[in-house]
Amino acid sequence: MRDLPAGRFAVWSTAWLNGRTSYDEALDALLGDAAHRVAGLPGTEDAVPLGWALTALRSLGEQRFRLVLPVPGDVRGLPSVPGLAALAVEAGQAAVGERLALVPEAAGPEAVLWTAFPVDGARPVAPPVEGSLRRLSGELDLAVSDAARTLAGLDVARWNPEVPALLTGLSQATAPGLPADHDSLALSVLGRAQRLAAVLDLATADAPGAAVNHAQAAARDDALRPLAHAVREATTAAFNWIPRG
Rank of each mutant, 00 (worst) to 15 (best):
Y23T: 04
D183L: 12
A122S: 04
A207E: 12
T55F: 08
R2D: 13
V189G: 00
T44W: 10
W52A: 10
P42T: 00
R20Y: 11
S188P: 08
M1C: 14
S22M: 05
T236L: 04
P226M: 07
A218K: 01
D46T: 14
G177H: 15
D222L: 14
L133D: 12
Q194H: 09
G177P: 07
L102P: 02
E25Q: 07
A34P: 00
T14L: 13
A29N: 00
R232P: 00
A122F: 07
R123D: 06
I242F: 13
L4C: 01
E62H: 02
D146L: 13
D201K: 01
A101W: 03
A95I: 04
G61P: 05
A111E: 15
L113C: 00
A26I: 07
T55N: 03
L224F: 04
P127Q: 08
P176S: 05
A88F: 12
P208F: 14
L190Y: 15
G121N: 07
F65V: 03
L187A: 05
T174K: 08
E25A: 12
A53H: 07
R76G: 12
E98S: 11
P42M: 00
Y23H: 09
P118Q: 10
D120Y: 08
T204W: 02
W241H: 10
V156G: 05
R134H: 01
T174I: 11
W12P: 01
A26Q: 05
R76Y: 02
V129D: 11
G191S: 01
L78H: 03
R225K: 02
R8G: 06
P179R: 10
A157L: 10
S137R: 09
S132P: 08
D181Y: 01
P179D: 13
E233F: 07
F65H: 00
L31N: 01
G245N: 13
A205E: 15
H214M: 07
L170A: 06
V129L: 14
V156A: 12
P208Q: 06
S171Q: 11
L4P: 01
E130T: 11
H182V: 03
V112Q: 02
T14W: 15
V81A: 05
G19V: 09
A223C: 02
A94R: 14
A228H: 01
H36Y: 10
L140T: 01
A193W: 13
A10S: 15
A198T: 10
A157S: 15
G77I: 02
V75E: 14
G131F: 13
P70D: 07
A228E: 11
E98L: 11
L196W: 14
L200H: 01
A152V: 15
A219G: 11
L4I: 14
L67G: 01
G19P: 09
P70T: 06
R244V: 14
L100M: 04
L167P: 03
A237F: 11
P243K: 12
T44H: 12
P124W: 01
R123P: 03
G108P: 07
G51M: 10
L140V: 00
R149G: 13
V89L: 09
R123L: 15
T204G: 00
S171C: 04
F239W: 13
E105W: 05
A217R: 03
P226S: 04
L69F: 05
H182G: 05
G97R: 08
V212K: 05
P226E: 05
P161K: 04
A35K: 14
